[in-house]
Simulated scan of single mutants.
Amino acid sequence: MFEAILLGMGAGLISSFLTGPVFFSMIKTSIEKGFKAGFSLAIGVIFSDVILIGIVLFGSQFLEYQESFDKYVGFIGGAFLFAVGLYYLFATVAINYDNNTLQKVSKRGYLIKGFLMCILTPSTLMFWIIVSSIISVKLNNRLDEKLFCFFIAMGTQLTIDGLKSYYSSKLRYRIKESALKTLNKVAGVIIILFALWLVFKTYNQFY
């Protein structure tokens, strides 16, 4: 169970920085429209992730586990995450700070926006397919532990997204694009290190 908690927290942490346009849209929305708008967008992302996880998790129950899955998951997953990390290192960040007046917002509208932005991003589905495969291998394909692990992942992700929205709205006059660029690079380095660790561990296991 402890391993399920660690895996869930790791997946939630990476996912909260992995959503690309959603990540910066959440910060941008919080700066321009306030915490409620940004957090509503975050909840929409969670709803989307829950649906994608359900599709991946219960769809995988129809696949018969083979030991060779470990190798494919390790190398393919590591390569995918490595590519994502490189993208974050070199991606540009642009935020419009002109709208500095907080207005009444439609929380439902931002919830739908977050849901659609996430569920229509192919990389999100690919991420959860890889995470589900890794979790299945590490937790011996036990459904109860996998469900608990994903529950922890969603809780971690929502907590981090909530903090991002809160502090973005509170520090809206101090957050600069240069700081977001730095955060982008830090996220890229973290993802790359995790990818290299995954490939290294897989290589040692099979070779």
Rank of each mutant, 00 (worst) to 15 (best):
V73P: 08
I76A: 11
L57S: 04
Y65G: 08
L52Q: 07
G54Y: 03
I55F: 13
I55P: 01
G74L: 08
L57Y: 03
S68C: 12
E67M: 13
Y87I: 01
Q61K: 14
A83R: 08
I76F: 13
F69Y: 12
Q66W: 11
V50D: 06
V73F: 11
E64C: 09
Y87Q: 00
A79H: 07
F80Y: 14
K71W: 04
V56I: 06
I76M: 09
V56Y: 04
F75S: 02
G78I: 14
L81F: 15
F82H: 11
Q61A: 12
V56D: 01
K71D: 04
V50N: 03
I53D: 00
L81S: 10
G78P: 13
E67C: 05
I51K: 02
V73K: 01
K71G: 04
L63F: 15
F62D: 13
V73L: 10
F82Q: 12
V56L: 07
Y65R: 13
L52C: 03
A83P: 01
L86P: 01
I76L: 13
L57R: 02
G77V: 01
Y72M: 13
I76Q: 06
G59W: 08
I51Q: 02
A83D: 03
K71C: 02
F75C: 04
I51N: 01
F58C: 08
F62N: 15
Y87N: 02
L81D: 09
L57A: 03
V84E: 07
E64S: 15
Q66E: 15
G54L: 10
F80G: 04
I55A: 09
G54S: 11
Y87G: 00
F69K: 07
F75V: 09
S60H: 06
F75Q: 02
F80N: 04
G77W: 04
E64I: 15
F69P: 01
G59Y: 07
I51D: 05
G59F: 09
F82N: 12
Y87P: 00
F80S: 07
F58P: 06
G74T: 02
L57P: 00
A83I: 15
S68G: 10
D70G: 03
F62W: 15
G59S: 10
K71P: 02
Q61P: 01
V84I: 12
I53N: 01
F58H: 05
Y65L: 13
